[in-house]
Design a binder for these strands. Structure first.
Lengths: 328, 328
DNA sequence: TTGTAGGCGTTATCAA
DNA sequence: TTGATAACGCCTACAA
């Protein structure tokens, strides 16, 4: 910046003003400075700017996996809304490990973000303490809780899966199996929803685990096989998500198992593939885009002083019925 | 930090040392300081640290879309390798626009990253100038060029698609259509590979565009319909990627079109779904994980002074033949 | 409209 | 092994 100032024959402060609040600088000076900036290829140092102004313009987001379809829309909405408000998104992966989440949260807090978005409501004690102490808005997403660290924007995995299960029950399915992972917090919630709905009607439940990667198509295939082996008369399976459900549907095509004639298949998430499968996949649509957008709004409003948002924001979900279960 | 120093009865410098180079501090003092840090919940301010030490420990990565499967493995490998080396990944989306890429690059350079990873070799002139001027290692990925800004780690989209096309030609296919987008630089390269291979054997080519989102399954469906309409005797289609190819295969199932009996279908990328479709999808496997890992190695070595890497690193590709094309 | 002084929280450097 | 001092590059506050 001093180079630019010297070259342009003005003070460093004037250069700073041309960048931050150009309106305060005489047009002539402003143009001269801008030309000099351009000529020298000067890029302002945000690090120094952050320190001096005590504003990082960072919003941190910590998600299990950047690549999961279900987070994709949320990240996109979050990112574009925040970008428009002048914030940069600091994105971190946790690969579905709470310890890794804690480490990422710690590292990110060191960058002094102005707000932080995390996925889920399940965190290590230290991670929770860190977030609480940070004093910045913390938005938990993709799930609900009565006791958010600060604000939660999401839907109930448990209620959603219970609702889906009840739909199957009203269609006369009785031997319904749930196939999911064992570790993922959202998977556990989904399982509980299933168990609850089965318990309500006094049906015996069968819940299978497919190991560490319940969101792979191959997990759907092995889950399907396992279910048919343990309970040959299984008439419906609810999978952890649409990827594993898609794996199962494609496996049924190969094995000559009719869906929904022989067995009903449901997923979770309403991924792109759900509508294109044969038969189309009955699933739970998560309004990821809305969650990301709403989270961004909460942040922007909070940081600008206003705070018209409740602490618990239920975005809801939709049951999307397609042909992978029988009609009424 | 001063709070910690005061509480522990040492100087700020000692606290700093406990964090940066604990070996230099007497064990007794170190433990005291650590306990105090823990008690106060102190999180070091990386912003100030960056400024003082002139090291950001940031590596910036600018990719078209965090959610594209093809980048997922690369980002994961990059991220984990860099994390292990003590760097943080600053991840940015460009949503496939070069202008947006330029803006992101500018903003990221302001954070003074120590290296930068970008996707592709096609950038605006200003983006190139910015990257060149920055003086940091710049790794272009997912494509190849003879004239990288600094270093390129990738594979040739053109050669890969030409190779795939030639495979179809050796199987006797003659009326081969390419279905892709129009804007994406990698899509353009792929199209050129196709056109070249067709020209080599003097066959007339038909290349279709499906608009802005060639990587959606629905683009595959519309591309398939368009191809059959414009050239009813089409015997093979190469799609922009595995998502659009998957859409086409599923549409063929519905329409009663036999694959590969009536038509052969190929994709690009070897996404998870490729192996599970019926029939399995013939495609080009991109070694994304290797690209991410190699990019990270180049960065780590460069930043540690060594530089044993060439400027052009071809990771190659593999043709994965499955049943969506006829056998020899 | 522009310039000057001081400080943001940390680390490098040198001294003790 | 520890501490004091001066940066790092910018912004806030105030002065001219």
């Amino acid at each position: 910046m001093h180079d630019v100032a010297r070259e342009a024959g003005v003070s460093a402060q004037t250069v700073s003003r041309v960048i931050r609040s150009p309106g305060l600088v005489k047009e002539e000076t402003r143009n001269l400075v801008r030309a000099t900036i351009e000529r020298l290829g000067y890029v302002p140092d945000s690090t120094a700017s952050d320190l001096a102004s005590n504003r990082s313009r960072f919003v941190a987001a910590v998600i299990p996996s950047v690549s999961m379809s279900i987070y994709e829309d949320a990240v996109r909405a979050l990112s574009s809304e925040l970008l428009a408000a002048g914030y940069q998104l600091l994105l971190g992966n946790t690969e579905y490990s709470l310890d890794s989440e804690e480490a990422t949260i710690f590292a990110f807090l060191g960058r002094r973000p102005e707000a932080m978005v995390v996925v889920g409501v399940d965190h290590t004690d230290r991670a929770k303490a860190l977030m609480r102490q940070s004093g910045i808005p913390i938005i938990e997403t993709m799930d609900l809780t009565d006791t958010p660290i600060d604000t939660v924007v999401g839907y109930s995995n448990k209620v959603a899966t219970a609702t889906l299960t009840r739909l199957l029950l009203t269609r006369g399915y009785k031997r319904i199996v749930f196939v999911g992972g064992e570790e993922d917090a959202r998977g556990i919630e989904r399982r509980q929803g299933y168990l609850q709905a089965m318990a309500e009607v006094d049906l015996s439940a069968l819940s299978l685990e497919t190991g560490d990667h319940p969101s792979l198509m191959s997990a759907g295939i092995s889950g399907l096989k396992k279910a048919l082996e343990l309970q040959p008369r299984t008439d419906a399976i609810i999978f952890f998500n649409d990827a594993s459900a898609a794996g199962a549907i494609l496996e049924c095509q190969r094995a000559g198992i009719q869906v929904p004639g022989d067995i009903a298949i449901c997923g979770f998430g309403d991924f792109e593939v759900a509508a294109h499968l044969n038969p189309g996949l009955t699933t739970v649509r998560i309004l990821s885009h809305d969650i990301g957008k709403r989270a961004a709004q909460v942040i922007v409003d909070r940081l600008s002083g206003a705070d018209p948002h409740p602490k618990i924001i239920d975005i809801g979900f939709e049951i999307i019925e397609r042909c992978s279960i029988r009609e009424k």
